[in-house]
Amino acid sequence: MIRTICYGIWAVIALMVVWCEVISIYSSRRIPGFVRMLETLAARPYRTAVLFVGWMWIGWHFFAR
């Protein structure tokens, strides 16, 4: 039962991500889409460096370890 609820909440979070992208499209991009949000995050040099370390960690964690 708990497991089902957990999966349900993950599904809701995934839905919210999709919903954000959808409202971004329907708001004529007044609300940034996923890619625009990432571009904003990577817009400064040191943020780029931090994001690079995070990106490397994700790859290492999921695909190598």
């Binding site: 979070i13 919210m16 991500v17 954000c20 409202i23 007044r30 609300i31 940034p32 996923f34 625009r36 949000m37 571009e39 904003t40 817009a43 400064r44």
Partner: peptide, 17 residues
């Protein structure tokens, strides 16, 4: 130079998620 900017409020839905 401040790079590509979005108003903080515009990012709120994403920050929430």
């Amino acid at each position: 130079f401040r790079g590509l900017q979005e108003p903080y409020q515009a990012l709120e839905p994403w920050l929430l998620v």
